[in-house]
Design a protein around this nucleic acid. Structure first.
Length: 688
DNA sequence: AGTTCTCTCA
């Protein structure tokens, strides 16, 4: 792509390739006239004037530079205008002029690294040391920059050679050329040229950009050898490196050191610290940095707010996201698209449906188009909370959008989940067909949703058929998939258990043999316990609770109460279920939120036994006894738990009542609880 | 002559 450069001689023989009228006609005369000084005056005091080359303005049409235009001469030129240097705009124009001159020289040096020496030698006037800095600073090509450095080193008398090295390092950083940089740095140090903070910040940032952060750390640690202590900029650079390395302690220690040494840190370093804390899970640390920053008088800007909002969103603290966003608006920091994406993600993850949709509407109101990921976030929230109508509307909207916002595999998957949650088999099947027609291969998520839906509809043969598609679609079952099959098993009619167990066996041999033991009346509980323990050790943490819920449900359905308690106890020992019971001076409680109905009822019976023991031991009951079922945000699961649980309590003649002011709680007094438990014990004695 | 800028869902 590089244009061949004519020889320097050729240049010298033709001082200008331009026709000045060609150049001038693109600039309106009204613009030029105020800047043009009377031609007469420059003859008297040429040193008060400087030439402003117009060549830069036409660089589109002119690739090859004219060396004479690099010359600092007061000689009038055809393609130049004269500016009164006392004019306030002169300084700006002067540097603009120098910049464009050198930008063009730098660009031509970049284009042909091999001609760097001849090109520099052919300049009408030798550049000064500070010209050399500007020239190198504008360069982009690593080998050309090193050649230029060499030329300057052998042709100029340099007073601050470290600066020339530093700008060359900067070019090498732009090129992400760590090897060149480190070699050149070694050479510089060997020659006894003392590095400074600028050297180190450039070196550190280059190694970070080149993904060799360990090098950044190495060089940072060498600073004392050169009698240097880091300044604010170097601290910022290295803090960022440690942050990205995940070395939070080191990032924090350096941040503290920089603060102690009273370096003025800017908002980006604070944003880095917020990000560092956020990604290590120390969300309060992130908030502290934010407060500290404000206390130090550094005003949070858009990036600060976005970083903090993102951290709070990841922390699962949507309420804090709301507060911080309000503060941001109060401080008149205008949100951008990233802000809205962050808000939408935070609210969707937290299932804050109203807030999610209000962000959505605000974005649309501002004419921002949501991308497919944002739509998918909304869709998956809809699937989670059973917002069928909203999901259908969003999905229809996506279909009308441009290609890069059209529904993707993920969108179809969410829609299948939406319909699966309401047990709408026909729509699930429609959506699956549509997905395949649109050219997307069904994923394990899709297959899991479909099986869930067939299971809910008690269509066990369809469950089996779907399982058979695993190989057809090239899907290998995972722990969640097995959890889904286990869930289907727990709600299957007794006569069809064998079919589902067959599917489970093919997906996970160990789980298959455990459920076989469970449905077999004759198996020993010790063996069962051992098998369950070993299975739970082999599956991923996120599915453990789900597995236990299903296994207990299965036992309850099979009237194996003892086995249900066995698994519940095992799960409590393994901390899969934690804090099921709590005791305070005023209230004893049972917490069954996030338990399945069978598990919750098993926990209830265990709790009742514990309460009876307490009474027998002469323990005083507190004024309130309560059960927390949770109200849940999912329309189809936890709400079900509360009502199913309530009817079971009624069946037990239990005195608990749902409290209108505390949703998801059933409460009773110690007196009522005591008499109820005593009457039950009496009845049991009579039966015995 | 130097640093770092948020950005995506099971």
């Amino acid at each position: 792509m590089a244009l061949p450069l004519p020889s320097p001689l050729h240049y010298s023989s033709s001082p200008s390739h331009f026709c000045s009228s060609q150049l001038l006609h693109i600039i309106p005369s009204t613009y030029l006239s105020p800047w043009r000084s009377p031609p007469r005056r420059h003859c008297f005091s040429p040193h008060l004037r400087f030439r402003l080359s117009l060549q830069g303005t036409s660089s589109k049409t002119q690739e090859i530079p004219d060396p004479s235009s690099f010359r600092n001469t007061s000689k009038p030129f055809k393609n130049s205008i004269w500016v009164n240097p006392k004019n306030p705009r002169a300084a700006a124009l002067r540097s603009q002029s120098a910049d464009s001159r050198y930008a063009r020289l730098s660009a031509s040096l970049d284009i042909s690294p091999d001609s760097v020496f001849s090109l520099l030698s052919s300049l009408p006037d030798a550049p000064t040391e500070s010209d050399a800095v500007v020239i190198l600073n504008n360069m982009q090509n690593a080998s050309a920059a090193v050649s230029a450095l060499r030329w300057f080193q052998s042709n100029l008398k340099l007073l601050k050679e470290v600066t020339l090295y530093n700008v060359t390092f900067k070019v090498l950083k732009k090129c992400r050329n760590w090897d060149f940089l480190e070699t050149l740095l070694g050479e510089m140090l060997q020659r006894g040229i003392k590095p400074n903070n600028i050297t180190f910040s450039t070196v550190i940032s280059c190694s970070r950009l080149c993904n060799i952060p360990s090098k950044a750390v190495d060089w940072f640690e060498k600073m004392p050898e050169f009698g240097l202590t880091p300044d604010g900029v170097t601290y910022s650079a290295i803090i960022d490196v440690y942050g990205r390395l995940g070395n939070v302690d080191m990032a924090l220690a350096l941040y503290d050191r920089a603060r102690q040494e009273k370096w003025q840190l800017d908002h980006i370093t604070f944003a880095t610290m917020i990000r560092v804390h956020g990604s290590s899970g120390n969300f309060d640390g992130a908030l502290n940095v934010f407060e500290e920053m404000k206390a130090l008088g550094v005003k949070p800007n858009l990036v600060t707010y976005n970083t903090l909002l993102d951290a709070m969103g990841r922390a699962g603290r949507p309420w804090q996201v709301k507060t911080i966003y309000k503060e941001m608006i109060t401080n008149e920091v205008l949100p951008n698209e990233a802000t809205y994406s962050i808000l939408l993600r935070a609210y969707c993850r937290a299932r804050y449906a109203a807030d999610s949709f209000s962000v959505y509407r605000e974005m649309r109101g501002k004419g921002m188009e949501l991308n497919v990921v944002l739509y998918n976030m909304l869709l998956s929230m809809c699937a989670d909370i059973g917002y069928v109508g909203e999901a259908v509307e969003l999905f229809a909207e996506m279909k009308g959008l441009l290609d890069d916002s059209k529904p993707d595999s993920w969108s179809y998957s969410s829609m299948i989940t939406v319909y699966s949650c309401i047990g709408d088999v026909a729509e699930v099947e429609n959506m699956l067909n549509e997905m395949i027609e649109a050219g997307f291969q069904p994923t394990i998520f899709v297959l899991t949703s479909i099986i869930q839906c067939y299971g809910k509809a008690k269509r066990i043969d369809d469950v089996v058929n779907s399982c058979n598609r695993l190989t057809e679609w090239g899907i290998s079952p995972d722990d969640r998939f097995c959890a889904c099959l286990l869930n289907v098993l727990a709600q299957s009619p007794r006569g069809e258990l064998g079919k589902v167990i067959g599917c489970i066996e093919r997906s996970n041999v160990q789980l298959g043999s455990l459920v076989k033991l469970l449905v077999d009346d004759g198996s020993a509980n010790e063996l069962l316990q051992k098998e369950a323990e070993s299975l739970l050790a082999n599956i991923s943490d996120i599915v453990k609770k789900g597995y236990c819920n299903c296994l207990i449900d299965l036992c309850v359905n099979l009237n194996q109460v003892e086995r249900a308690s066995l698994i519940l106890n095992l799960a409590m020992q393994l901390q899969i279920y934690s804090n099921l019971q709590s005791k305070s001076a005023t209230q004893w409680s049972l917490h069954v939120r996030s338990l399945s109905l069978g598990a919750a009822l098993t926990a209830l019976h265990v709790w009742m036994d514990d309460l009876v023991s307490s009474i027998k031991m002469g323990e005083e009951l507190p004024p309130l006894i309560g059960i927390h079922t949770g109200h849940g945000k999912h329309r189809y699961s936890e709400k079900g738990l509360a009502s199913a649980f309530e009817s079971h309590l009624m069946g037990l003649n239990a005195p608990f009542h749902e409290t209108p002011d505390k949703v998801g709680w059933f409460l009773t007094t110690n007196v009522a609880a005591r008499s109820w438990l005593e009457s039950r014990s009496l009845a049991e004695l009579v039966v015995a």
